[in-house]
Design a protein around this nucleic acid. Sequence first.
DNA 1: CAAACTATTCAGC
DNA 2: GCTGAATAGTTTG
Length: 92
Amino acid sequence: MTPFAKKVYKIVSVIPIGEVRTYKWVARKAGKPKASRAVGQILKRNHYPLIIPCHRVINSNNKIGGYVFGVNKKKLLLDMEKEILRCLGTRK
DNA sequence: CAAACTATTCAGC
DNA sequence: GCTGAATAGTTTG
């Protein structure tokens, strides 16, 4: 576990459901605004996918970068989380 | 330690 | 909108 990775994990795990953050945003929070690519790599090779909502981390322009299970799955995942929020919030 | 790789980002056209 | 170059960190040898 590298220090930078640790920061990234913590930051990403703080992202709320239904929200998305960009690699740049995470990198900036980690203290390395230029390490956006490194962030993506860490998420890709992370050993704790359960505590790291990597599907909530996308590139700029709200575009999905990549995903081990497929970009389409990632997109659906985000949409699914929105429905979860709707269930919890409006309790509909 | 150095080289290669990467789910990116920015600038130029 | 697409192509090319640059940045920083992880991983592997």
